[in-house]
Design a protein around this nucleic acid. Structure first.
Lengths: 178, 178
DNA sequence: CGTTATCACTTAACATGTTAATCAGATTTC
DNA sequence: GAAATCTGATTAACATGTTAAGTGATAACG
């Protein structure tokens, strides 16, 4: 529903049933957060159907995908790599374990920590999904241009780094004595 | 997700408690969806505390912000502008109405449609949040560079447009007879 | 002009995002 | 070495994302 209907010809009035007040609605819809949100949604919209056909959500896929790169990994590290918050990860790991797609066991040296690894069944699932997933990624790269895509990711990484610096400044201002 | 194969610096170890298997974990964490997700999260992390201080979530803010640009707007149009799915919007409008931040009434010509507008109370809230919000945005712009930011948004918009074209191709292939 | 299809939401159901609280295992402190 | 503290993981509670089903109103059709 929130999607794009028409490839947006320049629309004068904001739409049917909309009475304008004076401020342009464009200014808001062109904000950086909105640009990032829409771009990401446009990308994920390509992958979701394929993942869904295999009974996986985007986040479940992220986790299994991350697990294929390692023999085993601690939960905290996995959260960092898959970019998920602890509570989300906890729930998803519970479900993936119930589906026998992953295995989990406590760490020997520290019983608080849990070590996770992908199961043969999970590996098989990943191998079933990967081809279509990579085909989609290749198509995106082709349509947008490999060079341009690399440049975009460079710029996104740079944005991330600059903003990380901002947060440090915040904390320093908030807690000058720590 | 299906990554690109940048022949990058090989990673020694993926981190504490992580046993590597062979595939670099980097390849996955540098996928386009992850880049977009992390960049957006880095941006929103700056805004959330301020919004939270005023009792607003990111989506509630998006809606109120969009409403300040118009006298009134139909729900479907609002969903498009604020980039929210129908069900999410329904819930949020119900809550915002209960808090007297918006007003809603049926459209005269078509009783299915609902017309939404911001209330004086909502307007007051927006005016209270806007300064800090704009200050943050200005700081981001300054840190990243106004020119570079504009370029980034240009590239994001281009990506969006290219992917929209992809979806049309999908639909044509799936339903050739409709 | 009644039947059917379509439309604009709204609800429902499940998965995740987000923050706070909890809880058991490890560290530190005295 | 027991109490206080800290830490990794989970649970709780609420808000949103996502898809499917439901509801009432309108439009299309015969």
């Amino acid at each position: 529903m929130a999607g794009q209907k028409s490839p947006d010809g320049p629309r004068q009035s904001a739409g049917a049933g909309t009475e304008t007040r004076g401020l342009p609605i464009r200014e808001f819809s062109r904000s950086l957060p909105m640009s990032l949100l829409r771009a990401r949604e446009a990308v994920m919209r390509q992958f979701r159907p394929s993942l869904r056909n295999h009974g996986l959500t985007e986040q479940q896929w992220r986790i299994l995908r991350a697990l294929t790169a390692v023999d085993s990994i601690e939960v905290t590290e996995l959260a960092r790599v898959a970019f998920l918050l602890g509570p989300s990860l906890s729930r998803i790991l519970r479900d993936l374990e119930a589906r026998n797609l992953i295995e989990r066991r406590p760490a020997k040296a520290d019983l608080r920590r849990a070590v996770v690894s992908i199961s043969p069944r999970g590996l098989k699932l990943i191998e079933a999904v990967a081809p279509s997933s990579e085909a989609i990624y290749a198509e995106i790269t082709s349509r947008y241009g490999a060079r341009k895509l690399a440049e975009l990711q460079q710029m996104l990484g740079e944005l991330e780094r600059r903003l990380a610096a901002m947060e440090i400044a915040d904390e320093a201002a908030a807690e000058p004595g720590e």
